[in-house]
Design a protein around this nucleic acid. Structure first.
Lengths: 131, 131
DNA sequence: TGTTTGTTTGCGTCATTATGCAAGTATTGC
DNA sequence: GCAATACTTGCATAATGACGCAAACAAACA
């Protein structure tokens, strides 16, 4: 498969928020789904800790599931923008997209904070326009 | 249900990483699972934009699924630490745990960066101890 | 060309999850 | 107590997802 990684960071902008920060833009279910499976998470952690590109075979060694399962998980992770795939000969190398991931995570945190009412008060300012 | 929200931030520390930053600690599948469903995401976005506690009924108005489905999703989101539940009379108010969410997201970003090799080089320093 | 190696894909199975409806519980007001 | 309101729970169904096995594919090598 000619892995066409999404060029924009993992959480692809969807539609603009109605009345506050660009929170919808960063709350992409597809992005979070990538991390919602324990096996997938351990694969990402394994590659992340390596700090370099890892082949499918290498990654498969660090967990107990079938080789084909690892292959499928890694492909999914690449599709959702978490990993970057690079083919070299017959070997497929997957690498964590550190910068893009960090940017997405921090952008979401920023967007959340924009929605957040004053740190102590809990009254908020909903005018009914948003929900 | 007496909603006992997890007191620690959403991503509950699990086990320490083998050879680098505390990345496993923040890569909690349960946390990400909360955001992996489109319906749930829209509910969170709705409450987040309001910036205050919203009742189940209010939230249900902003999406097309059954009332009971909303109730269940909100309960799940509270269990996974994304929302905070507060009962007032017969009304249940759900509020986004902004601070805890932001902290979790930023901690994960930090942990990822710790694993990240030098910004430009892609060689990394895997010694085989981690995967 | 045939074989080995590294990875992907098809397919069937099992488990989990999302959903709606109807019935249940809890709290308030009459 | 009784009815209304706000929400939760039980149950059945349909959809989705994870998994392993076997076969297919692609690149390198003999």
């Amino acid at each position: 498969m000619t892995q066409t990684n999404k060029q924009p960071p993992p959480a692809t902008p969807k539609q603009a928020a109605a009345c506050c920060g660009p929170i919808d833009q960063w709350l992409d279910p597809e992005f979070f789904k990538a991390f919602s499976d324990p096996t997938r998470v351990s694969l990402v952690a394994c590659i992340a800790k390596c700090g370099r590109g890892c082949s499918v075979g290498e990654v498969a060694e660090c967990c107990s599931v079938d080789f084909s399962v690892v292959s499928r998980h890694l492909a999914l992770l690449a599709r959702s923008g978490v990993l970057e795939a690079r083919k070299e000969g017959r070997t497929m190398y997957y690498r964590v997209r550190y910068a893009e991931l960090c940017r997405s995570l921090r952008s979401l945190a920023d967007a959340l904070e924009e929605c957040c009412p004053a740190p102590d008060s809990q009254k908020g300012t909903c005018n009914g326009a948003c929900c």
